[in-house]
Amino acid sequence: MNVFRLAGDMSHLLAIIILLLKIWKTRSCAGISGRSQLLFALTYTARYLDLVTNWVSLYNTVMKVFFIATSYATIYLMYLKFKATYDSNHDTFRVEFLLLPVTILALVLNHEFSFMEILWTFSIYLEAVAILPQLFMVSKTGEAESITSHYLFALGSYRLLYIFNWIWRYYTEEYYDLIAIIAGVVQTVLYCDFFYLYFTKVLKGKKLQLPA
């Protein structure tokens, strides 16, 4: 554990809390992509099945349980409790275009052809692109509420901080995992455009609005 890793995890935690609070306080999930949330739930389910086979630490276990539980809680809020506020008309990204290539890639490019390892690889690749339905939704409506922008910023920062963590670990422990690193870089790059808008608009008190 180093400072980048901890900051990354905290940023991830913060993103989820922001999202849940937004939905809960406003009693609405308007502007949030249910498809991205479904992909995240699938990501954490596939990755954290090792909860039962691999003990790392109490921190690790608590975080994994939290990520799985909150991903399903979000889906419950979006598709059941506050279903009437879910903006499904704008949430039209075809997730099969992500799931199919990600599945094939996980079967071909992995460290070991075993059930758990392929599930882990699948989750790493899927996480990298899981935000695309959400970003697509923002570009389709041309705007995002400030709170949604803060959520996206925290979520995007998390993998960026992990990249610094991987650089740190490479030099201090000679540890690196190419699959995680490349997917993490792709994941972060997908947020670049959003980061730019966040710094130039949202932080100056303006609403995130895309040029028409």
Partner: peptide, 10 residues
């Protein structure tokens, strides 16, 4: 051959 390192990241 080589055992994979333990996955300790989230």
């Amino acid at each position: 051959c080589c055992k994979l390192p333990q996955k300790d990241e989230l």
